[in-house]
Design a protein around this nucleic acid. Sequence first.
DNA 1: TGTCAGGTCCTCA
DNA 2: TGAGGACCTGAC
Length: 273
Amino acid sequence: MIIDKVNIDLKGTLLSGSCFRAIEEDDGSFTNILSDRVVNLKQDGNKLIIKSSNMNNIENIIKEYLDLGTDYESINKELIKMNPNLKSMIDKCNGYKILNQNSFEMFISYIISQNNNVKRISKTIESISYDYGEKILFDGKEYYLFPKYEVLKNLKEEDFRKYGVGFRDKYLVDFLNKYKTLNDIDKLSTEDALKKLMTVKGIGLKVASCILLFGYKRMDVFPIDTWVKHYISSNYNIKNDIKEIEKFSKKSFGKYSGLVIQYMFHVERNIKD
DNA sequence: TGTCAGGTCCTCA
DNA sequence: TGAGGACCTGAC
């Protein structure tokens, strides 16, 4: 299956750090585990070559996952018009997309992410999926889907500890206890959604913003982490203070702040000058 | 062997 | 109300 005429930086997008389960293969393709299937994506110029354990409705699923329906070129133009000094950074992010990922998986992944490193986050998610997720055979190998809420809801703190989540064990249990009360997040304003998410123990502003950006397609959030803090404080004349940086990005980048911040993260972490 | 990691919570002025 | 320390654990 091929999707044609696509402007995407597949590698940059999948290895951007928002997706903890993409595997880079020797042939340059990427194998990734979505909520109900395993996919292998290969970029050849402006073509995407797709293989999957389940080809049913695959074109729509990949277009949604890679956010191919959003007109990033227009958004980028608008951003540059508002902030001409963003041009050189945005030019470095041509084809970079915000992935639309499973929201339940984003909750668990980003709760685990606090004060943690990407390697260990990925390892923990893989181990939990191995024990509680559905096994999928694809291309002669075994993969494990991210477990469903109905399976994880019965786990206790000590169960999570086995996977090296450390002090985050109680946060995961608190989230699972409250998950059903969070089913209206989609309908709330971004501000109210953030407030509601932060009623869960272990979810602060950064984690809540990531969940909304990657799990609920909200671009008007401020997932400011150490990388972005570093980028903004070294490229702009802004105090290295989370409140100051949030005020600045809200004023400068408006409804696309989440996207700009991801661009900054991408440039700061993955593209060294 | 020690430090640090894509934060958050809690305590104490 | 805000500053600063504590927190699991494994990769480097």
